[in-house]
């Protein structure tokens, strides 16, 4: 596997505040990565450091196996940090022409990228007249100008209306589908869950989890169950030994699995014991629950 970015023991302090603490992770070509963490967990700072706009206090990072200088490496990267930053008095094409000069790529790509994000009709409009959603899409077009090896997006849907969020997510999926490596920082769990294959979870600048999204969801899920005879149902569930614990929420049992078990098998078994289920749903824990579990565990260790 080709390594795109390797971060080793990165630390950044702002005075007394430690924004990033001994952070290490590696980004391989071809995957879609998420950096997940609540606001203020050090996501943007981390991206700022690898993008050469924030100076690290200690630690190191290297792009493309360290064969190029950071600013040359950045010419092969497309990145948007926080808000889209362009010259407000210039129109879309003028702004992108400037980016082409900086990245040393031909200007012929401007039309292709503006069309991709649906802004070609507005190419003559000044940047300051754009809505936030359009600015964000323009930033993506700009980041794609050099056909980057990796696209870095920091909170790309922040502050957008539902339609704008949808447009951006569709765009990200389209780009990911073409095989571009993506690093997406977000505090929105479902965003990461929907888009990413790998995830790095940060809390207060520390790495809590680093691996595949599927690996994080390695639990076997849980059942929501309801029957006419709840007591008999409970006996069957407890007797089977396949459930780690059973909660009751209203008149529904939530039974957490500790081994794989399919819904039809459970239904079949209950039926054999003359229990008729009136409600049977198998669910996987959402990333949100996983995320809260992870961050809570860490909290307990600290306190």
């Amino acid at each position: 596997m080709e390594t795109i970015l390797k971060v080793t023991d990165l630390t950044k302090k702002f005075g007394h505040l430690t924004a990033v603490k001994n952070l290490s992770f590696t980004i391989e070509k071809g995957n879609v990565y998420g950096i997940l963490g609540p606001n203020g967990s050090g996501k943007s700072t981390t991206l700022g450091i690898v993008l050469n706009v924030v100076n690290a206090t200690s630690g190191s990072f290297s792009w493309f196996d360290g064969n190029t200088s950071t600013h040359d490496a950045l010419k092969k990267v497309g990145a948007i940090i926080e808000r889209p930053n362009f010259y407000p008095y210039m129109n879309a094409v003028q702004n992108l022409r400037l980016v082409c000069k900086i990245k040393e790529v031909p200007e012929s790509r401007i039309e292709e990228k503006l069309t991709l994000v649906g802004l070609w009709e507005r190419r003559e409009s000044k940047f300051k007249t754009f809505s936030l959603g359009m600015k964000q899409r323009m930033a993506i077009a700009s980041a794609l100008l050099n056909n980057p090896e990796i696209l870095i997006l920091d909170e790309p849907t922040n502050g957008l209306d539902p339609q704008g969020i949808h447009q951006i997510r569709e765009l990200i999926k389209k780009i990911a589908g073409e095989g571009t490596t993506i690093l997406l920082a977000s505090h929105l769990l479902d965003e990461v869950e929907k888009v990413c294959s790998h995830v790095v979870i940060l809390r207060k600048g520390e790495n809590l989890y680093d691996g595949t999204v599927d690996g994080m969801l390695a639990s076997h899920g849980f059942f929501e169950l309801k029957a006419d005879d709840m007591n008999a149902l409970k006996k069957v569930l407890e007797g089977s030994g396949e459930f780690s614990h059973i909660d009751q929420e209203g008149d529904i049992f939530i039974a957490y699995l500790n081994t794989p078990l399919e819904a039809q098998d459970l239904n079949h078994r209950c039926f054999e014991k003359q229990i008729t289920l009136t409600h049977l749903v198998k669910r996987k824990e959402s990333l949100e629950q996983q995320f809260l579990t992870l961050t809570n565990n860490q909290e307990q260790i600290h306190s």
Binding site: L51, H71, A79, I81, N85, F86, Y87, I102
Partner: peptide, 17 residues
């Protein structure tokens, strides 16, 4: 004020350049 310096550097202009 436009924060374009940040974007310039991210786009691959070195501080020296």
């Amino acid at each position: 004020t436009n924060k374009t310096i940040k974007q310039n550097l991210i786009d691959g202009l070195s501080k020296k350049e």
